[in-house]
Deep mutational scan, measured.
Amino acid sequence: KWTIEEKELFEQGLAKFGRRWTKISKLIGSRTVLQVKSYARQY
């Protein structure tokens, strides 16, 4: 389950980097690239 903080970081990353999942993953820190991709599908 994603925390509110992780969701906010995901949204910031999406706005800043677009669909560059590796960069978003590094920004969040606690999620892998695969987790970020998977979350993006449901987002």
Rank of each mutant, 00 (worst) to 15 (best):
K1D: 15
K1P: 06
K1G: 13
K1I: 12
K1F: 13
W2C: 02
W2V: 02
T3C: 07
T3V: 03
T3L: 14
T3N: 06
T3S: 08
T3M: 10
T3R: 04
T3I: 11
I4K: 09
I4F: 13
I4E: 14
E5H: 07
E5A: 11
E5M: 08
E6G: 15
E6A: 15
E6C: 14
E6W: 15
E6R: 15
E6V: 12
E6L: 15
E6T: 03
E6S: 04
K7F: 09
K7V: 04
K7N: 02
K7W: 00
K7S: 07
K7C: 00
K7I: 04
K7H: 10
E8N: 13
E8F: 01
E8Q: 12
E8I: 09
E8A: 12
E8R: 12
L9E: 01
L9N: 12
L9P: 05
L9D: 06
F10N: 05
F10C: 02
F10A: 07
F10K: 07
F10G: 09
F10M: 06
F10L: 07
F10E: 05
E11P: 06
E11K: 14
E11F: 09
E11V: 09
E11L: 09
E11A: 08
Q12E: 14
Q12P: 04
Q12L: 07
G13Q: 06
G13Y: 04
G13N: 00
G13R: 06
G13S: 04
G13A: 09
L14V: 12
L14S: 06
L14E: 00
L14R: 06
L14D: 08
L14W: 13
L14K: 04
L14G: 01
A15C: 05
A15Y: 08
A15K: 10
A15F: 09
K16L: 08
K16M: 12
K16N: 08
K16R: 13
K16Y: 04
K16G: 02
F17A: 02
F17L: 00
F17Q: 03
F17K: 02
F17R: 02
F17E: 05
F17G: 04
F17D: 01
F17Y: 12
F17V: 03
G18K: 13
G18Y: 09
G18W: 15
G18H: 05
G18A: 06
R19E: 15
R19S: 14
R19F: 11
R19W: 10
R19H: 14
R19V: 07
R20I: 11
R20N: 15
R20G: 06
R20H: 13
R20W: 01
W21F: 01
W21G: 01
W21K: 00
W21Y: 10
W21A: 02
W21V: 09
T22N: 10
T22G: 12
T22Y: 12
T22L: 10
T22E: 15
T22I: 05
T22W: 06
T22F: 07
K23G: 02
K23T: 08
K23H: 05
K23W: 05
K23V: 07
K23A: 13
I24Q: 03
I24V: 08
I24W: 05
I24E: 02
I24L: 09
S25N: 00
S25Y: 03
S25I: 15
S25H: 01
S25D: 01
S25P: 10
S25A: 15
S25K: 10
K26R: 11
K26A: 11
K26G: 10
K26V: 03
L27H: 11
L27M: 12
L27Y: 08
I28T: 00
I28V: 10
I28M: 10
I28L: 10
I28N: 00
I28A: 00
I28S: 00
I28E: 01
I28P: 02
G29S: 07
G29W: 15
G29E: 05
G29V: 11
G29T: 07
G29R: 08
G29N: 00
G29H: 05
S30M: 03
S30T: 13
S30E: 06
S30F: 03
S30K: 03
S30W: 00
S30V: 03
R31Q: 03
R31H: 02
R31F: 03
R31C: 01
R31Y: 04
R31V: 00
R31A: 02
R31M: 05
R31L: 02
R31W: 06
R31E: 00
T32I: 00
T32K: 06
T32P: 03
T32Y: 00
T32G: 03
T32Q: 00
T32R: 02
T32V: 01
V33P: 15
V33T: 13
L34H: 14
L34N: 15
L34A: 15
L34W: 13
L34D: 15
Q35C: 01
Q35E: 13
Q35F: 07
Q35M: 10
Q35S: 05
Q35P: 04
V36N: 03
V36R: 00
V36D: 00
V36C: 08
V36Y: 00
V36A: 02
V36L: 09
V36M: 06
V36K: 00
K37E: 14
K37Y: 09
K37T: 03
K37H: 04
K37A: 12
S38E: 15
S38C: 10
S38A: 13
S38M: 10
S38H: 07
S38V: 08
S38W: 07
S38L: 07
S38N: 14
Y39F: 10
Y39T: 02
Y39V: 05
Y39K: 06
Y39L: 12
Y39E: 02
Y39P: 03
Y39D: 02
Y39N: 01
A40N: 01
A40K: 01
A40C: 06
A40R: 00
R41H: 13
R41Y: 10
R41V: 11
R41Q: 14
R41S: 15
R41T: 13
Q42K: 09
Q42C: 10
Q42E: 12
Q42H: 10
Q42N: 14
Q42L: 12
Q42A: 11
Y43L: 12
Y43F: 14
Y43H: 13
Y43Q: 15
Y43I: 12
Y43G: 10
Y43V: 13
Y43P: 09
